[in-house]
Design a protein around this nucleic acid. Sequence first.
DNA 1: GATAGAAATGAGAATCTTGATCATCTGAGC
DNA 2: GCTCAGATGATCAAGATTCTCATTTCTATC
Lengths: 141, 141
Amino acid sequence: METSNLKKAGLKVTLPRMKILEILETSETRHLTAEAIYRELLDSGEEIGLATVYRVLTQFEAAGLVCRLHLEGNQAVFELERGGHHDHIVCNQCGRVEEFFDETIERRQREVAQHHGFAIKDHALVLYGDCTDSVCPHRPV
Amino acid sequence: METSNLKKAGLKVTLPRMKILEILETSETRHLTAEAIYRELLDSGEEIGLATVYRVLTQFEAAGLVCRLHLEGNQAVFELERGGHHDHIVCNQCGRVEEFFDETIERRQREVAQHHGFAIKDHALVLYGDCTDSVCPHRPV
DNA sequence: GATAGAAATGAGAATCTTGATCATCTGAGC
DNA sequence: GCTCAGATGATCAAGATTCTCATTTCTATC
Ligand SMILES: [Mn+2]
Ligand SMILES: [Mn+2]
Ligand SMILES: [Zn+2]
Ligand SMILES: [Zn+2]
């Protein structure tokens, strides 16, 4: 088990924290809601409460282990922090999420903010569209 | 009264709809939460329920009269649609909202989406930072 | 202008997501 | 193994938004 991340973050190594971290590390889907993680825990036979999932995810976020995103939809999604900042494209039809990083956009954001007298600290950028994935119900014929 | 917008949108001209539209048109603040609109209605002596405010705003959104934004914070904000698309910068300290439009960012978004096989339909971009407004508590000395 | 039917409203209940409380349990150090 | 600060789980609570349904208000028609 990879408990070093937890220790480094100053968090006691507990079973719920290990299991949640493991799900974030191994799940097919990179971007998971708290409920999705909770269901995976139930499916694997763990008796961990939903409140704990939210609590642990919030702690992970504060510790810089995960980041929380709002991708249109009422639930926040969480993803493991893997060093590099990136933004997201979401398919309106099948919900698939792709990641991207564009230095031009990043630079223009800084410039625009400066023009308006803001010292930019953060940003949220999500693109919405229709994807061409083979399983997407909207895929053009 | 400017009831033509309502009629054009195929909405029956009612007192709540007129009042809400009037607030959106005349308020100092361009970006208003449903609750803020509700409070303005109460202050001006109108007996309009909060549920109606939400209902009407959702209808206005569907009709293209207003757009709904999520500017970090739990409440959505609404603003009158004035033709031109724009994005937003929000001050982390005082909450001030500035608007901007940058063609370079818009173009790169389309290009990035295309690269990933997406037909982009929409996007949400919000920059967060510290502003230099004279009343902002974070203003540098 | 009165009338009728459809649509809109208001009050409050309901829902959904997330955070708070608190008694009980667990892990890290000794 | 023992201790206790910290973590957990069950439940409750809060905030935002939507739903329900009885009552009211527009709009069209006479
Ligand atoms: Mn991501
Ligand atoms: Mn705006
Ligand atoms: Zn798709
Ligand atoms: Zn400010």
